[in-house]
Simulated assay, not measured.
Amino acid sequence: MARPTPPKDPGALTRFIQGEFHARHRARLPALAALSEEVESIHAGRAGVPAGLAGLLRQMIGALEVHMKMAELILFPAMRKAAPGLDLPIAALRANHEDHTAEVEQILGLTSGLTLPAGACASWTRLYAETRAFLDDLKEHIRLENEVLFPQFETGVARHG
């Protein structure tokens, strides 16, 4: 399925990010963590089990929620008003993106790059397919903010990474 084209206008882009990514992360991630918990429990001790994935996904729920609330309640409204002095909140969100990218690497490590073991059950297969979809969404979310949205408001003061 093709992704919708993000708008160029920064105010519209902030709304697009909220509707396209924030809403989907909130909807998908708790179910993904629960599915991972199920797979880890049922297949405990089996080679290739992504032990710890559910915990990492639950950690990401909290981290992403803090990140998204900061964007929705502080940064995005300020961007919509073209407020000056956004370098520090943007730097904070860029730092969050680096943390999320590190968590993605941990997920890939725990799952052998989302490679299913031979004979994986339907739940395990669904877990990895849905995890891939989440990671693809997160990657695009981060790209849109880092490469498209944030540069429109940065003045170079406090630019992180």
Rank of each mutant, 00 (worst) to 15 (best):
M1E: 11
A2G: 09
A2Q: 13
R3Y: 04
P4G: 07
T5G: 07
T5E: 11
T5H: 10
P6K: 06
P6E: 06
P7Y: 06
D9T: 12
G11A: 14
G11R: 15
T14Q: 08
T14E: 06
T14V: 02
T14R: 11
I17K: 13
G19P: 07
R24Y: 07
R26S: 00
R26K: 13
R28K: 15
L29V: 01
P30D: 03
A31W: 13
A31H: 15
A33G: 03
A33K: 12
A34H: 13
E37Y: 06
E38N: 13
E40V: 02
S41G: 10
S41M: 08
H43I: 03
G45Q: 04
G45S: 05
G48W: 09
G48Y: 09
G48L: 07
V49R: 11
P50H: 08
A51P: 04
A54N: 10
A54V: 04
G55T: 01
G55R: 08
G55H: 07
L57I: 02
L57N: 03
Q59K: 15
L64S: 01
H67L: 05
M68I: 12
M68K: 08
M68G: 01
M70R: 15
M70A: 14
A71T: 12
L73I: 11
L75T: 02
F76Y: 12
A78E: 06
M79H: 05
M79D: 04
R80W: 04
R80M: 10
K81V: 00
K81P: 06
A82T: 03
A83Q: 15
A83R: 15
A83Y: 08
P84Y: 08
G85L: 01
D87R: 06
L88I: 09
L88H: 08
P89Q: 04
I90D: 05
A91M: 05
A91V: 05
A92R: 14
L93Q: 03
R94I: 13
R94K: 14
R94M: 13
N96M: 14
N96H: 15
H97I: 03
H97D: 01
D99E: 12
V104D: 10
V104H: 13
I107T: 01
L108P: 00
G109E: 07
L110Y: 02
G113E: 02
G113H: 04
L114P: 01
T115M: 04
T115V: 11
L116R: 11
P117L: 05
A118I: 12
A118W: 09
G119D: 09
A120P: 00
C121Q: 09
S123C: 08
S123I: 02
W124M: 05
W124F: 07
L127P: 01
L127Y: 07
L127T: 05
Y128N: 06
A129H: 14
E130T: 00
E130M: 04
R132Y: 07
A133G: 08
D137S: 02
L138V: 01
H141E: 06
I142K: 11
N146M: 09
E147V: 14
F150H: 03
P151E: 00
Q152D: 06
T155G: 12
G156P: 00
G156H: 02
V157D: 12
R159P: 03
R159V: 07
G161F: 14
